[in-house]
Nucleic acid binder design. Structure first.
Lengths: 114, 114
DNA sequence: CAGAAATATGTACATAAGCGAATATACTCA
DNA sequence: TGAGTATATTCGCTTATGTACATATTTCTG
């Protein structure tokens, strides 16, 4: 299906590419707890303000966070908790993967210098 | 927590970065149905064989697919169905996002040349 | 063992992406 | 309106990533 390819291109361009940076993932997990404005997020994550602003822009353009101005501050909200659900699933995948690798390392060790 | 940051760095490096290319996402969805060898996948997705091989290497290094040699062919298997679950969640996020945008476009149209 | 088939890798190149530093814009309040 | 605070953007640079093409490697078969 050319339709599937198109849908997946959009999935990548609009969502997955938003997860293609560790700082952005960290931001999403941070915003899961409560909304932050840029300065708060900047100091909470110990990242330069322009860096935070740039990443937030990327997440906003992809519809993964929502911004709301309150006076001089702009607060950012996680727009869809399912993003966190997805990330948690991927963390579970990672955990399994690490466990498998560990098991392999173990069996390799068993076979070491026999 | 520096621990959270470390874990998320690993999550990104090992899993999320594997999803940072539309062809790889397409490959994962394809392998969800059944195992494919490189040639089959290459022709099924209409991608050059070296391209497919390279992407598969990336997915394999991240533990997202498993390879098994059968004669001259190397078959690739999806290693963890939760990757697909996560992608489906992200597709749902995308769908909601598009719907919101659509609603916004609609209300913008309502306010058009009043 | 030679040749074919399947897969992996090396190289070169183009492009995308992130970052630091500086600067611009938006908003508030005296 | 002008200073101060918060946020966004631009510029220059560096690094990372994907691809095409050619080639190497592995495995099977005769």
């Amino acid at each position: 299906m050319t339709t599937l390819r198109a849908e997946i291109n959009q999935l990548h361009a609009q969502v997955c590419s938003g997860l293609a940076d560790p700082n952005r993932i960290l931001m999403l997990y941070t915003l899961k707890e409560r909304p932050y404005n840029v300065t708060e997020l900047s100091s909470a994550l110990d990242l330069p303000q322009p860096t935070v602003s740039r990443h937030l822009k990327i997440l906003r353009e992809r519809g993964m966070v929502i911004s709301k101005r309150e006076g001089q501050a702009v607060y950012y909200f996680l727009s869809d908790a399912r993003v966190i659900e997805a990330l948690d699933l991927l963390r579970a995948v990672l955990a399994s993967s690490l466990q498998s690798q560990g098991a392999l390392a173990q069996s390799a060790q068993d076979n070491e210098s026999p």
